[in-house]
Structures are given as C-alpha cells and as structure tokens.
Computed example of a mutant assay.
Amino acid sequence: MGEQEYKATSMLRIVAGQFLEHRFAVIGLGIILIFALLAIFAPMISNLLGVNPSDQNIFNRYKPIMTRIEKSLGQREEVVERFISDHREQAQTLITATREAGLIDAKVSDADALFEIMEQVGEDPATISKLSALNIPEANAFIKVLKSFTTVHYLGTDELGRDVLMRLIFGARVSITIGVLVACISAMIGLIIGSLAGYYGGFLDSALMRVTDSLLALPLIPVLILFAAADIKQIPVLGWFIRGDNESIAKMIVVLCIFSWMTAARLVRASILSVKEKEFVFAAKTLGASDFRIIALHITPNILAPLLVAVTLGVGSSIIFEAALSFLGLGVQPPTPTWGNMLYNAQEMIYEAPLLAIFPGLLIFITVICFNFVGDGLQDAIDPKAIRR
C-alpha cells in the first residue's frame, strides 16, 4: 500500500468554513453588506431618484408610500431660474438651439424662453423627446431638470415633507458609521489598557482594573445622557475632536467611546494572563525582545480572535445607544438624519403616521440582530474546541 497523502488546510480556510456553516451569521453578514453598500452609494441613489433627503415641502407632509408628487408652478419656476443663473452659458446655448429647431416662438424673449419650454412640457410631454433630439449636452442637462418636477416617494414623506426612503439610506451612513467607529476605537483602548494590566500585573493591574470596574458599575444610560447634554467641547483634550460641521456626530462618538472600552479591556486582560505564561513568550524574553515587541508581535495576535468577536457585538450595542440618545433628542442633531433622530421626530405623530417610527425602528432591530448573528458565527468559527480539522 502506498503512503496516504494529506493536504494541509490553512487556519483561515478552516475558520471560513466553520463560519459559513452558521446559516444565520451568513445571512446577517449579507444584510449588513447590503446596508453598507446602500450607505456608501447614497448620493448616487439620491441623484438617480432625483430626491434630496434635505428637501422640505410642508404642503406634502405625511404622504403615504408610493406617492407621486408634482412640484407647484412656483417651485418649477424657481428650479428653472436657478438653472439659468448657475449655467448662463449653457442656458444661452440651449435657447439658441431651441430657436433654430422651432421649439420657441420668435416673439418669446430669451429671458422667458426656458420658462416657455417648461410650460410646453406640462402641456405636451412629447416636448422632452424634441429636446432630446437636439443632441447637445445642454439639452440633456435641462431635461434632467424638467424630470425633477415629478418625484416618487416610495416610503412616503415625513413631518416636513422630506423623502423617508432617502433619509433612511442617509441615516444608515451615520448610524452604522458611528457604531463601527465606536466599536473599533473602544477595542483599541481596551486592547491597550488590558495589555498593560495583564502583562505587567501588580499595582498597575490593580489600578487599571479598579478604574474599569468603577466605570462598569455606573448606570450607562443615565451617564450617557448626562455627558451628551453637557458641553464637553470645553474640555481641552476633547474640544479638539468636537468641532466643525459634524460636531454632534463627533460628540456622539467621543461620548460613546469613553464608556464602551471596559468590556474589551477585561477580555484582553483575561486572555493575556493565560497567553503570557506560554513557552513562546519565555523564548522571546530569552532572546532579548522588548516588552513592547512581545506584546505587539507575540501576544496580541493570539488574543485577536476574542477581541474581534467583542468588536462585532459592540457595533450593535453602539448603534442602540446612539439611537437611544438621538431618540431623547441628545444625539446627532438635525438636519443630519440618523435612525435615532428619525424615531425622535416620529413620536409626535405615532398614531397618525406610525410608519415613520416603524421604518427606522425596524432597521435598527435588523441591523443589531445581524451584527449579533455575525458575532455568534465568528465566536463559533474561531473557538479552538469547535474547529474540526
């Protein structure tokens, strides 16, 4: 009998195979990727649908789903006037081309020419085809303006007549970004503090862990409300981060990071206490490696697996805390849309327009559940006892 050949399987492939066997984790990861792609391409989707999430129209408040709205005459004239003022040379080229094509009466002045075409489109939609036949970029740009007069609001409008679908998509950018950033930054802080406490031990370990335990003992929501309501820009170190146009977003990230690193720190410390007694750590010390090199290159790679799970689960928690503070009016401030402040705005009309609260609430629920499923899947995949070689 010939010798049986064995083909080695990499650890990455083993972990990936274990993860793919977790059906709910795979589904959760797919949904998260869909939400992430929608958030990344939100401006492109806005241009494609011809709807801006910040456009307000108080005459079309609380419209139901799949509502088609025509702009009023005054709004259409304002859009055309803006097009003329922003693109004077293009507008003049278009007016000349339309006169040559016989689309405008000779008696109409240049100042009223494009307004005349606008009225013709309202009476005869075939005018758009005649404009398109001019075969010039200026005509295509104006056609895009004319088509923006009719908008379809697939999920209706909110209390200010803004499109709900686009606000949900743009809200995903803020809510998911805050969740991911807070989880990653908290993991880095927890990694540093947990590494120092676990590796050096002694007084440093006791001091850092007592601070960690003290913060863990605090009631989180009331403390977050207190810090979110306070003007923490006056604190010298934090004031440098919290400034600019996205001040409320930066403030939310800072506040959540301050109170989100403790679990990661205790997890890292517990892992290091067991890893630092291994033979490869003693070998590195014998060879003269510095403490920083041992922690960074030898110990940290061996504790990344549980830390990665903690980060994944922490994203869901951060999204919930952001939504809770925004729901209380202390989070990200309007006009920047987030799922939390959309819930806050919807609470006044919860009975008259319940979908305004259901849509963001449902997205928060789905996103958090999906991140938790992915965390469970990673935990099972990287657990040495569960790995089948």
Rank of each mutant, 00 (worst) to 15 (best):
M1Y: 08
A8Q: 15
M11A: 15
R13F: 10
F19P: 04
A25C: 04
I27S: 01
I27Y: 04
I31L: 15
I32A: 00
A42L: 05
P43N: 09
I45R: 08
L49F: 14
V51F: 07
Q56K: 11
F59G: 14
R61P: 05
Y62A: 12
I65D: 15
M66S: 12
I69V: 15
E70R: 12
L73Y: 15
G74K: 14
I84C: 11
A91G: 10
L94P: 01
A97R: 03
A97P: 00
E100L: 03
A101V: 00
D105F: 13
A106C: 04
F115T: 06
E116Y: 15
Q120C: 12
Q120P: 12
V121G: 14
D124V: 11
I128D: 09
L131Y: 07
L131V: 10
A133K: 15
I136K: 14
A141D: 14
F142D: 09
F142S: 04
V152C: 07
H153K: 10
T157I: 10
G161E: 10
V164A: 08
L165W: 07
L165D: 09
I169G: 04
R173Q: 11
S175Q: 07
I178G: 03
V180C: 08
V180R: 04
A187K: 03
I189G: 13
I192F: 15
G194L: 06
L196E: 05
Y199G: 05
Y199T: 11
G202M: 03
F203A: 15
A207S: 09
V211E: 04
A228N: 07
K233L: 03
Q234F: 09
L238M: 05
W240F: 12
F241G: 05
F241V: 02
G244D: 12
I249C: 00
I249H: 00
K251N: 08
M252A: 02
V254Y: 01
V255N: 03
M262P: 01
M262S: 02
A270R: 05
S271D: 11
E277C: 06
L287E: 01
D291F: 00
F292V: 06
F292G: 02
F292T: 03
A296D: 06
L297M: 12
P301D: 04
A305G: 14
V309D: 03
L313F: 11
G314H: 01
V315A: 06
S317A: 01
F321L: 10
E322H: 06
L325Y: 11
G331M: 03
P334G: 09
T338I: 00
W339V: 02
N341E: 10
Y344C: 09
A346N: 00
A346F: 00
M349W: 03
I350K: 04
Y351T: 11
A353G: 05
L356Y: 09
L356E: 03
G361W: 00
F365R: 07
F365W: 09
V368P: 07
I369T: 08
C370L: 01
C370N: 02
F373M: 02
V374G: 13
G375D: 08
L378Y: 07
Q379C: 04
I382T: 09
D383K: 01
P384W: 01
R389M: 10
